[in-house]
Design a protein around this nucleic acid. Sequence first.
RNA 1: AGGGCCGUCGCCAAGCGGUAAGGCACUGGAUUUUGAUUCCAGCAUUCCCAGGUUCGAAUCCUGGCGGCCCUGCCA
Length: 557
Amino acid sequence: MSEETSKPLNFIERIVKEDLDSGKTPAIRTRFPPEPNGYLHIGHAKSIWLNFGLAQKFGGKCNLRMDDTNPEKEDEEYVESIKADVQWLGYQWDGEVHYASDYFEQLYEWAVHLIEAGKAFVCDLNAEEMRTYRGNLTEAGKDSPFRTRSIEENLDLFARMRAGEFADGSRTLRVKIDMASPNINLRDPVIYRIKRATHHQTGDKWCIYPSYDYAHGQGDALEGITHSVCTLEFEVHRPLYDWFINNLPVPAQPHQYEFSRLNVNYTITSKRKLKQLVDEKHVDGWNDPRMPTVSGMRRRGYTPKAINDFCEMAGVTKVEGVVDVGMLEFAIREDLNEISPRAMCVLRPLKVTLTNYPEDQVETMTAPVHPQHEEMGTREMPFCREVFIDQDDFLEEANKQFKRLVLGKRVRLRNSYVIEADEAIKDTDGKIIEIRARVIEGTVGNNPEDGVKPKGVIHWVSARDNVDCEVRLYDRLFNDPAPDAGGKNFLDSINPGSLAILSGCKGEIGLAQATLEDRYQFEREGYFVLDSKYSTAEKPVFNRVIGLKDTWEKAGA
RNA sequence: AGGGCCGUCGCCAAGCGGUAAGGCACUGGAUUUUGAUUCCAGCAUUCCCAGGUUCGAAUCCUGGCGGCCCUGCCA
């Protein structure tokens, strides 16, 4: 790639490159550190893309580390889903999965080290008292009355905390930094709390657990992480991160760098709110195709490539912005357009009887699997006297903008004949239930000899040989670009039309061979994939991943 | 006057003192048996604002304005 066409490095890539070039570090190691307390979403996908991508790009390694310091909120179910999601996105962590809990013993020893150095103390203040002593944004805090305990007493008390002699919440281990610091995170932060909770990895071995601030940087140091990348809200924690690294005999000196988290409009990425959608059954589970979770996007039919491309497109900066979902949709269409075999599927069938076509005749029509990729081969489909077209593709009369079938006018059946409509048959309610039309002889692959060209092209499927299926059309889950902004209740902006289930859809016969991995472009409709939850061999269920770009609807017709 | 961070096109985003990349969106127009794709063209005299330094400022300085984060024994 030439100088002028190569993409400029983002600020983190630039830091990495400089560290590598200067020899500050011979190789880099990053890590993706989720807390196993929920399912991964699009925001995590960006972190995964960034951390694993950085390692890939610069010939380094990336670890997967469960940040499991709060057993009350975590569960093995989540660690399993996290591993699956990371791999589905196309990444493989270096070595085994790591856990912050792997380091509990070492962390404990280092805590003792801090006590021995006179830098940590056991505090008996309860939560409310501690809040009072902490001061606030404009007023300095006060030293805890327990700050001056002797090293011996602290050592004894801390050992007894571990031994389970004290009640939950009754004491904490705190580090002595500065109660007057303008950075509240430095006002003698708690690094251990007593919490009798069974841990998904360590069981009941511990009743004291280290805090995130205390565990994270040390975990990085232990794993040899060189660049610890996290989101902006941890920026004010960096001085604490560095304090531990500088005051503990850690084996390495990792550094923390922060970038702005990904926000996408019409979308929420709060784990709490996502969980609420699931718990209150507003959606069909964590992997509901409308969810911005990795598992939801997977079930919806998004590809890992599209998600990774999207992350790259959005970029890495410290600016807190909101990316347009349109960019995500573009990334998906771009990938799917390239790789998807084409097929025809009539979503709202309307029967067309071709009155001049012999009752018992069947012709085999051949069509390219992908018009831009001849190497993908061809497909065949039977054509006969009765076919289905979409109800939206017929109008008794219309202006010349309408490029579909109109009474007395012609239209091309894609990959087949040009037909001309003669009559619309209606039921007693006036609803059109059948069209009677004629094929124009010799128009397969050719324009009509009489020079009257069809106005447009519509898709169709044989009414005798087809695959009956259900199709699920998804729209954005929220109507509001910022569902949870301000004081709004995000539930109020749920889009009631976010899921439309169409049954009795008719797909071309080749669709009977579809597998869960195959994504198709249903021509003129969009991209579709079998639903992993509801689809069966007898009754295929297709999810619409994303519609085709539609400049017609936008034109307001 | 608590501390930290951020402000470049409708949305992302390059740019790091030499005269505003790119992508999404949008608007033309060409090709098209998908109103898709592809293709070509257009789209910031201006970089939150105001001063200043300089031959020259989005880039440096000063002062404002606006936004976000931090007062969990969450991460």
